[in-house]
Design a protein around this nucleic acid. Sequence first.
DNA 1: AATGGGACCTGCGCGC
DNA 2: TGCGCGCAGGTCCCAT
Length: 271
Amino acid sequence: MPELPEVETIKQELDKAIVNKKIIGVVVNNAKVIKEPKKEKFVAELKNVAIKKIIRKGKLLILELSSGKSLTIHLKMTGQLIYPRQGGASPVKATRVSFKLSDGKFLDFNDSRVFGELRLIDDWRKLKFIQELGPEPFDLSPEKFRQMLKDKKTKIKVLLMDQKFISGIGNLYANEALFRARIDPRRPANSLSDKETDLLFREIKKVLLDAIQHKGSSVDQYVQLSGKPGEYVKYHKVYDREGKECFKCKGKIKRISLSGRGTYFCPICQR
DNA sequence: AATGGGACCTGCGCGC
DNA sequence: TGCGCGCAGGTCCCAT
């Protein structure tokens, strides 16, 4: 789903495609995704405002505007940003909000499950989500990462997905990073040796960077800004491979549930 | 403090 | 072929 690599891919594409363009109109097909302010105010305050800068924090996208406000976009599970809209004037079924830009083209926010969240706010730094967000893997040292795990008894995989602990990692990359580091997802975080912790830290950063290079993983709804799928799926080792052969040992990939999330691993390779 | 489960939603794939 | 059901996961919220 959209995790750090997918959101970063979109961020980089938005940088090239829409910065310094102006929003000349907003069409709302489903107001549920607009969390603040109310729809009418949201639409009115976005009119004739230019997009100055794109920022990504964890899985959150932030568009800083010439009005001084910011538009934040969380894709949650099935959100997409598409630009320019393909096929002319009519949006697709899942298009919840459309932004008409000064070049006459549409930036569409699509979200089949309507979990996504748009906010137009004065200061994104004051958002609760932002204030509570943990550091990104790239902002940490191996020493700091070790320290963070030291007194945590939580299962390592659940901890990696906790955005307040570390930001950007979701279910897919938590599974993949743990496979690469050969660590059982059920292990308590503080049971990892220094060596295992360092290896895990390296593999987290590697898998995220690899995925960014391949423009993310299109397993469900995620696509790039252009609508093209991301290509990292072909490099997945465990995610969504229950019962299939482990590429390393030929054993069977197992699926269990941790905190209600599908967890895939190789019981032979991961200890 | 840590953990689990439900809620938010829709679409898909499965079994019958 | 059609239908109902379970499931997918990011985040929040509540209960234990």
